[in-house]
């Protein structure tokens, strides 16, 4: 198993090489606390970077979000995801097929509609809602060859470590082989995290 650390690019690269040599989807395990978490297989790469409440609030505060919205944001767990389709065919990002597993318990992701409801209750200005939507990872995306995508996935804040498990159809008509991704030991970042 490979570990990856935010400051250990060479380790991540080594893992990449080893995983490619292994010729199968990789399961990357992270130790204490290691960010960003890196995954790579023969078709795409992914990075998952937990953001602390202070980082999240700071970002949106700088975009003019009001205090009532910042409080809601601080109480949630933000994972910034970056993916890059390195294959010559389509890779389907579909968040409904992502699972967040804390042992036998499944954590429920906060969807766009969850946030829309929250913003309606808080009467968040339309411009802030628009910015927020653009910072979320798309719910669904037919990633073209060499196409990157990035954005946040959000969960209710939790102290429990969890695994992120996802399935990806491939091919323009989803006719290609299914790919899976599993990243272990993901933790919501706290303000005292590095």
């Amino acid at each position: 198993m490979c570990s990856s650390a935010g400051t250990a690019t060479s380790i991540a690269s080594l893992c990449t090489v080893l995983l490619l040599l292994a010729g199968r989807p990789a399961h990357v395990h992270a130790g204490e606390p290691q960010v960003p978490l890196v995954f790579e297989n023969d078709m795409f790469s992914a990075q998952l970077h937990p953001r602390s409440p202070r980082q999240v609030a700071g970002f949106y505060e700088a975009r003019g979000f009001p205090k009532r919205a910042l409080e809601a944001l601080r109480g949630s767990c933000f994972l910034t995801v970056r993916m890059h389709n390195r294959s010559p065919t389509v890779v389907w990002l579909e968040l409904h097929s992502w699972r967040f597993l804390a042992g036998t318990r499944e954590l429920q992701r906060l969807s766009r509609s969850d946030w829309d409801s929250r913003w309606r209750r808080l009467v968040l200005p339309q411009a802030n809602r628009s910015t927020f939507r653009w910072t979320l990872l798309p719910e669904s995306r037919d990633l073209q060859a060499d196409e990157p995508v990035g954005g946040n996935v959000t969960l209710p804040a939790t102290d429990i470590p969890f695994a992120v498990e996802a399935r990806f159809a491939t091919g323009a008509q989803k006719q290609g082989p299914m790919r899976t991704m599993r990243i272990e030991n993901v933790r919501c970042a706290k303000d005292d995290s590095p």
Binding site: V90, S140, D142, Q144, A172, Q173
Partner: peptide, 10 residues
């Protein structure tokens, strides 16, 4: 609709 779009992109 997404499949059609994907086919167009492909």
């Amino acid at each position: 609709r997404q499949l059609v779009y994907a086919a167009l992109l492909a």
